[in-house]
Write a protein that binds this DNA or RNA. Structure first.
Lengths: 131, 131
DNA sequence: GAATATATACGAATTGTTTCGTATTAAGCA
DNA sequence: TGCTTAATACGAAACAATTCGTATATATTC
């Protein structure tokens, strides 16, 4: 069953990343997690800010929550790879005029990949060639 | 000389893409170009909207303009590949938690690449390996 | 040279996202 | 039980991006 394009905002993605990494959680846990890894010069995110965002995300269907207890437990309702795939597509279209290949070339060329990483890619290419 | 991160918005990028593709142009030309390739169900962008955006971009230094004639000529003041590189980095950080490799793998895996494209990538990998 | 077409300038409305203050309610505890 | 702590709900402020209306000036044309 196809869904329409899932396009979380940056803040929403930040929250989803926490839920994907650590599983179902409370607003408090998500908020603490986000504030625990702040970039320097960055202001903390207030608790009610995170709460509000997660409520909105629940409305949009990005997350579901268990409200049987007073403290709600939120979990992501969309998969990480589906979301990445969607965002990737949008990004390729806007920034690389639809050319996934030129994105790959740029990413590869710029990133100092290790031997292991390059091997991994070669392996994937082999698999793609033998299809 | 390093610049600070160049991060045009989506609308700005749309305009930059026209300027990169077709060279220095008037607001009218850019606006027409954008409206000539509208996705279905998409509303046209008004002339003054594009004008305003390009004026803002001039303020920000994304474009420069020749105002010696009544009809101003705008040209991009930032390079396409630098901009792509910047946006790519931001995108990798937010959507792929900083892992350029996992982005490359996703992009490769999902995109149905032609033999030529795969060859091109293999060539690049070879070059990277011999460094 | 008057009417028309087309350009810029620019304030303000609109829309979307994020942040925050505060009310209310439930738990925990002295 | 009453006090403190911690949770949700929610309206609205603050910000940012985009869109638009309109004033004004300059060309163009008849």
């Amino acid at each position: 069953m196809a869904r329409q394009p899932i396009k979380p905002t940056d803040s929403e993605l930040q929250i989803l990343n926490v839920l994907w990494a650590n599983g179902p959680q409370t607003v408090r846990q998500v908020n603490d997690d986000i504030n625990s890894k702040l970039a320097p010069e960055t202001k903390e995110t207030g608790y009610t800010t995170t709460l509000k965002l997660m409520q909105i995300m629940a409305d949009k269907g990005l997350v579901t929550r268990d409200t049987s207890q007073r403290t709600h437990i939120y979990k992501s309702d969309i998969s990480e790879s589906d979301t990445q795939q969607n965002l990737l597509e949008t990004f390729v279209n806007t920034t690389f005029k639809g050319s996934a290949m030129s994105l790959v070339m740029q990413a590869l060329g710029n990133h100092k990949a290790s031997k292991e990483e390059l091997d991994q890619i070669k392996q994937l290419i082999n698999k793609l060639e033998n299809q």
